[in-house]
């Protein structure tokens, strides 16, 4: 399943990040976001706006279309 299919507040483990844009991938890696990390989908802003995630003990904001490229599995 993909990250944006999670419900608000649900947790999942990241399976695959390789389909996101190269620069986004690098930035996520900088923040410690890699395959195998646990992610919590916190909320999304309206009209296809960005979503808020909690991962590696920090909160990050990410575009929805990028989040749609992240594959996860529910924990």
């Amino acid at each position: 399943m993909i990250l944006t299919e999670l419900k608000k507040g649900e947790k999942a483990t990241i399976l695959n990040l390789s389909r996101t844009t190269k620069l986004v991938q690098r930035r996520l890696l900088d923040l410690g976001v890699t395959e195998g990390e646990e992610v919590c989908y916190k909320c999304a802003l309206p009209f296809g706006g960005p979503c808020m995630l909690e991962v590696c003990g920090q909160c990050i904001g990410l575009r929805r279309n990028e989040a749609k490229e992240i594959q996860v599995v529910r924990t």
Binding site: R27, L28, Q58, C59, I60, E66
Partner: peptide
Amino acid sequence: EHSVFVVELPP
């Protein structure tokens, strides 16, 4: 070009 938006939200 592909836009990049990753932002850290500090406590």
